[in-house]
Amino acid sequence: MSNLIDNGQTKLLGKFLDLSVYRQGLLTSNIANIDTPGYQTKDIDFKGELQRSLSGATDDSSPSFGPTVRNVPDLTTRPDGNNVSLDRESMMLSETSLKFRLAVQLMKEQFKEVSMAINDGKAS
């Protein structure tokens, strides 16, 4: 039987938040290395990783846990071998922040329901 706290919804949101944090890490690395010769833009396949983690193919507690990081194709490489695109990284940064915010809000709604059940149907 599904319960209010530990259900598919919160699990999905939890994974979503985890992957958002992971992606944020890669984006800041990309931005930090915008002037590093030879650095290649890194990212994850967000949708694929989310599906993979939900299908139970990965075990969070195993040391090898972590999405597969890949180099982003189709970016123009500068003469110094660096292909970090300022526009792409800025766009992705806003996108990731907004998606993270959305997931946090949805998660709060989930907890609000639990809180409501505890407080005899009254909010807060």
């Binding site: 800041t28 915008i34 990284e89 922040s97 915010r101 946090v104």
Partner: peptide, 23 residues
């Protein structure tokens, strides 16, 4: 410009931390 961009990234990350504290 690169300094500014990194400062923006710090702000974005800061926002994410603040939001998760909201939970």
């Amino acid at each position: 410009r690169s300094y500014e961009l990194n400062a923006t990234a710090v702000q974005a990350t800061r926002g994410m931390i603040t939001q998760s504290l909201d939970l």
